[in-house]
Nucleic acid binder design. Structure first.
Lengths: 137, 137
DNA sequence: GATAACGCCTATAGTTACTATAGGGTCAAG
DNA sequence: CTTGACCCTATAGTAACTATAGGCGTTATC
């Protein structure tokens, strides 16, 4: 199949596929006489794998590792497990820090009583840490 | 003060300060005869404002708007309020999606019973949506 | 006065995961 | 035979910096 068909089948984009090829995530497929890429069903499976990993939050670097692991079916799956664990840990850190940000902003917003810029408590709070009403500042 | 002193005082980095100048977030300060930047206390306050906004999750584009607002002290502070609101909304969306990711990964991980790559349930789940145990897939 | 260590300067490229654009060739239908 | 949809490459842009190279300025010590 051609690249456009592949893109639709994997819910991806043509440019993204070429990008993955450049990064070495997808193998360069054979070309037609006029130079157009010709993909197989296997290529489609691989692209779906990549997209699905991305959907789950893996980075392309991590996907590259997962692809390599898949190629050695006799190996132990502990590395896959570890990758998942580290990703979960990363996400949890992220959740914490975004939650903290949100709380800080809500505190800041609570200081606003709708006046002029000159006495805007939010801007004052944003000016420096020691004038910020956030508990975290 | 020179750029290094400014950086330390605002808990920033020298390169970051020059970067902010290039973006127009900080004004280009006067230079010494040999071409070195000379900053005032006002510059320090402004840099602290920027850094503190960043700490609260505002983008540099948003910081630029906030700086402009600060310069018109007679204006109403409603735009500041709106900026905070939209940032809070953005963060809430982000929290939801990261939480979802985390749940998906935990589900995936729960399928692993420590075997070989060949029958790794995680890799199978990652291969395609229709083989994924995630409720979201 | 020489030298070393540090600070400052500019300009460019790298990071992540794409997206957008320019400028051109290919293919199938009417 | 031409129109429109598709394909190609190469380059630049996104966010917010960080890193690097290569070269001056400044200051302290010997």
């Amino acid at each position: 199949m051609k690249i456009g068909t592949l893109a639709k089948a994997a819910d991806s984009k043509v440019v993204t596929i070429r990008y993955y090829e450049k990064l070495g995530l997808l193998e360069a497929p054979p070309r037609s006489l006029s130079g157009q890429r010709e993909y197989s069903a296997e290529d489609l499976e691989r692209l779906k794998f990549i997209r699905h990993c991305r959907y789950h939050g893996f980075s392309l670097a991590e996907v590259k590792i997962l692809i390599k692991l898949r190629k050695a079916p006799e190996g132990n799956c502990a590395p896959v497990d570890n990758l998942i664990d580290s990703l979960i840990a990363k996400l949890e850190t992220q959740i914490d820090s975004v939650n903290r940000l949100r709380q800080n902003l809500i505190t800041l917003k609570g200081c606003c009583h709708g006046g002029s810029i000159a006495d805007c408590a939010i801007l004052k709070g944003l000016s420096q840490r020691d004038s910020c009403p956030c508990s975290a500042c």
